[in-house]
Structures are given as C-alpha cells and as structure tokens.
C-alpha cells in the first residue's frame, strides 16, 4: 500500500512538473477527443439504465405509464416504494436473500479462514493430499443434473440450507487465504506455540486478525455472489415458492405477462386508492422491484472498490 501511495504521489508530481512543457500536437488533440468521447459514451451507457430506472420509480406514475419520463424526473413521490409491502411474497424473498447472503457469506469466510490456516501447517497428516483433494474440485464438475439429483439425495432441495451448505467450502477463496497466511511471518505463530497456545488459539488470536484484508475481500465477493445468485433458487426450490430469492422473484415478475393484479394481494379488499392505481401499473412495480434488488449492490460498491485490484492480483497466484 505504501509503495502504491508513493507511486501516486510521484505520478502527480510528474504530471505537475511535465504540465507546462507538454506540447500538444494536433494528432494528440484529435486522439484525446476521440478517446474521451468513446469513454464518456460508454460510461453513460453503463450508468444510464440505473439512472433511468431510478427516475421512473420516483416520478408520477401516470407520466411513467405514458412514457413521458426520459431524462428528468417529474412529480416526485416515494409511494411506489411504500406500496411494495403489498406485493405478494416480496418481503419473504427479500428476507431469504438477506439471510442467505449474511449466513452464507459468514460461514464461507470462517471456513475459508480455518481451512486456509490448517493447510499451511506442514505437520498435518496428509496435508498436500487433502489440499489437492479440495482445490482440484475447481476444475471439474459433474454437471447440472447430477448435481441437482445429489442435492435432492442429501435433502437440500426445497430447503433453505441448500443455499448455504454447498457454498461453505470455496476452493478459490481457500487458495487466496492460504497464500495470504503464508506471507505472515512464522515467528509470530511460533512464539505463541512456545507459550502453550493451541492451534485454535493461534487461529482466532493471531491469524484471523492479521488476515482481515483478504477475508474482507472474499467476504465482499462472496456476498455479491450470494445476492445475485439466481439459478440455484430456480433449480433447487422448485416446489417451495417461499424460498425463492429476490432475484428469482424479480425474474418471475418480469415474465408475468398476465394481469399484474396476480402479484398483488388483491383478495384482501384493503387496498388504498393509491395501491389500486398501482395495481394497474405493472411497469412501475417491476421498476421499483428492480431498484430494490440493485440498491444493496450500489451500497456496498464503494466498499468493494478498494478490494478490486487486491483481489484480482491475488487471483493471479496459483494454488
């Protein structure tokens, strides 16, 4: 990190010092214009859908239905978000997604840390054999159908644990953690063993705190993976709609061609006038649900960015 910072400072200095001397040839100007235009257009293409979706969820629903909202929101309100509580099963799905993300990520990180630590211990019985046994599973899989049959055999279909347990052992993350732990000076551990610490003590008191950067990296990537995961819900939870994740629910709604009333609690007769209006407006509902699904990602995104390059560069290390 320190080296990086130093580099940045140098870069800035260089830029400043080379500024006045820098001659711009006409060719450079044209190049810069083209280059900037390309990147500006592509950047807009990347963030415009987010923006467009967002302004449509907070604008007046009538205008949205007419398609009058293009660049500027009109008639601001948050009723759409409040009305979501009336959408069938949305809350359940949200809770399923949140709990699988929290639980699944937590267990995966703890397991990766522990396994990563244990496989660095040379004195372990059959160390390299077991390490390879785990890591090699990255490179093959039996295929979707055998995997599904296997999950049903061990009773994890239509079962919330089906989201959690298969993801606990993540070979790639184990490699990352192992590589990181190997870079921690061995003297730290050794002195602890001399003082009579057990393996578990050393792991919780020394290794875990020192590995926090890498654990945070895998946690964030794991959490995004869990939040976005969709096919496992589709394949495993066929018979229990109350276990569908938010992504799966959104997929269902997007494909809902019939009257959107089907997804609202229309039978209760307790819908307010605003909700009645919303009933007719499937478009805003879909948009708002999409927005709710994407918001958590946008919230963690700034935290993630710090770990991008670190994670990717570590990924270049082999197992």
């Amino acid at each position: 990190m320190k080296i990086n910072l130093a580099n940045k400072k140098n870069e800035k200095k260089q830029l400043k010092s080379s500024g006045p001397k820098y001659h711009l040839h006409p060719g450079d100007v044209i190049f810069n214009i083209l280059n900037y235009s390309f990147f500006i257009i592509f950047t807009i293409a990347c963030i415009f859908p987010f923006y467009y979706l967002f302004i449509n969820t907070i604008s007046d629903n009538d205008l949205v239905r007419k398609g009058a909202i293009t660049l500027i929101p009109k008639g601001l309100h948050l009723k759409n978000y409040i009305s979501l509580k009336n959408v069938n099963d949305l809350m359940t799905s949200f809770m399923v997604s949140v709990s699988r993300t929290v639980l699944g990520t937590g267990l995966m990180v703890a397991a990766s840390g522990l396994v990563g630590f244990v496989v660095t211990k040379k004195e372990m019985w059959g160390r390299s054999l077991w390490y390879r046994f785990i890591v090699i599973t990255m490179y093959f899989n039996a295929g979707m159908i055998p995997w599904y049959l296997n999950m049903s055999m061990v009773g994890l279909t239509d079962n919330f644990l089906g989201y959690i347990i298969p993801g606990i052992v993540a070979p790639y993350n184990i490699i990352l953690v192992k590589t990181y732990i190997e870079s921690i000076p061995a003297e730290l551990e050794e002195s602890a063993y001399i003082d009579g610490a057990t393996y578990i003590n050393v792991f919780t008191k020394i290794i875990w705190p020192l590995s926090k950067p890498i654990l945070a990296t895998i946690a964030i990537f794991g959490a995004v993976g869990h939040w976005n995961s969709f096919t496992d819900s589709l394949i495993l939870m066929q018979n229990d709609a109350s276990l569908h994740t938010l992504q799966h629910r959104l997929y269902t709604y997007l494909n809902e061609t019939s009257n959107i009333g089907a997804i609202m609690r229309s039978g209760t007769g307790q819908l307010s006038a605003a909700d009645q209006a919303l009933l007719l407006n499937s478009k805003t509902i879909k948009y708002t649900i999409s927005m709710v699904t994407v918001l958590p990602i946008l919230f963690v995104y700034p935290f993630m960015q710090r770990y991008f390059e670190k994670g990717i560069m570590l990924g270049a290390v082999k197992g």
């Binding site: 990347c46 979706l53 969709f230 959104l250 997007l254 879909k286 999409s290 990602i297 995104y301």
Partner: peptide, 17 residues
C-alpha cells in the same frame, strides 16, 4: 465496472426498461 456486479436478471430488467 458496476454492471459486472449486478445479476443477469437485473441486466434483463434493464434491457426491458
């Protein structure tokens, strides 16, 4: 980089909008 972190379902939702 943001689009990489949203699911394909959301990409489809964007495509629809």
């Amino acid at each position: 980089t943001i689009p990489n972190f949203i699911s394909w379902v959301l990409v489809y939702s964007f495509a629809c909008t």
